[in-house]
Every structure is written in structure tokens, then in C-alpha cells.
Amino acid sequence: MFGIELQNVGKSFGNNEVLRDINLSIPKGSFTAIVGKSGCGKSTLLRVIAGLENVTSGSLAYTDGKAKRSDIRIMFQDDRLLPWESILKNVAIGGVGIKEAEAALEKVGLDGKKDAWPDELSGGQKQRVALARALASKPDVLLFDEPLGALDALTRMEMQHLIEGLWQEQKFTSVLVTHDVSEAVHLADRVIVLDEGGIQMDKQIDLPRQRERDEKFTSYEKNILDKIVGG
């Protein structure tokens, strides 16, 4: 396991400054959520952490010297399953063996579908396969790029449960990008509000798990929402 350190990170596309002066330390094994309006730079920040984008200024480091980019996995908003491979083969990619893939599918409750084609599954099932694929290589860091955005409310709750359970079991360092504040409060130890490329708020969520929508929960939620809307 390793954490992530960002120091004075800035990112521009041409003249368009997407991220500016981000200082963020993500401890290993923690669950951090990044929220903000669309266009606030949250997805770019995730892609920088993943090493898919180079920083324009500042530095990005993994807190364990031996850590490699290959120990990081991303779960995307779309499932990005290969339509020409079976479910099992989709999970067993990039050096993951069949046994590990089967175990990962079992964890998300889809071991019965391993011989199916991706298009035979529902949207929620496909995202579960994507989660199994992300977990199969036992990553140190798992990045979530709005992975539940396209799912219906019930399936989303199911998935949140599943992700929380697996995180508690395996303690991979998690970073979740979402526009859904309630989802962020539900899952994360800490919520970061991003606006116009800078950190506006950095809030610890001190609630016991499994979290219920009680008074404390909604006060956190309101607090964060006000910050996003009010700026």
C-alpha cells in the first residue's frame, strides 16, 4: 500500500488552466472523495494522480519509493469492457491469472456470468465486472472516476455497499471523484471540494460505518453542498 503526495500541482491545456496550486496528501489506505461542479477539474486531478496526464507544474509522488504506476487501477465512468472477450477474460487482463479473475468475480457476485459476453449483462452488472477487473490485480491504489454516475438509484446503492465492503476488507488507497455529495459522504473519510481548479474545502467525515442518513450525515452533506454552490 502507498499514499499519494501532490505538491503545488498545476495543469494547463494550452492557455486553459485546469488545476492550480494543488497541495494534497492522501494517506495510504484512506478513502478520499473529490467533489465539485462539472468542469472544476476533478476528473483531471484523478487523471494526474493516475499518471495519465503529466503535471504542468509542481510534483506528484507516491509515498512508497517502490510504488509504480502499474500498482494503480482506475474504474471509469463507463465500464470499458472489451466486447469481444468473455466476462472472465475481461477480468483476467494485464497479467491477472484465471484463478485470481475467478476470485474477483466471486467477490462482486458474478462468478455465474463468467462465460457470458459483456453485452448480455445489465449496466450495473457490467460495472461490477469493471470493479472485479480493478480489484483482481490487488492494486495499492484504486481510483474511481464517477463509476456509478450512469446507474439507477437502487443499483448505485448496491454498488456503494459493495465498494465500501471491499475497501474495508482490502484497505486499498481510494480516491473517488463524484458530483454526488451524498455518495461522497457515504463512502469517504475525507471530502475535498474543488472549484476552478483549486481546493476550496478539505473536510474529514467522522461518522461510523455503515453510514445512515441521520442528522449528522445530512449536516455534513449540507455543509459541503453550500460550499460547492456558494463557492
Partner: peptide, 21 residues
């Protein structure tokens, strides 16, 4: 392109990217 990006993130070699994606 999104599938290719996924392949890269998931540690596929250039040859695997070619034959699998």
C-alpha cells in the same frame, strides 16, 4: 480510444494492446 487507455492503465504491453484491443 477509451478501451486503449483502459488497456494501458491495466498494464497491457504494446503487443497485448495490439492483439487484445
Amino acid at each position: 480510444r477509451k478501451l486503449i487507455e483502459m488497456g494501458k492503465v491495466y498494464g497491457m504491453s504494446k503487443w497485448q494492446l495490439f492483439t487484445n484491443i
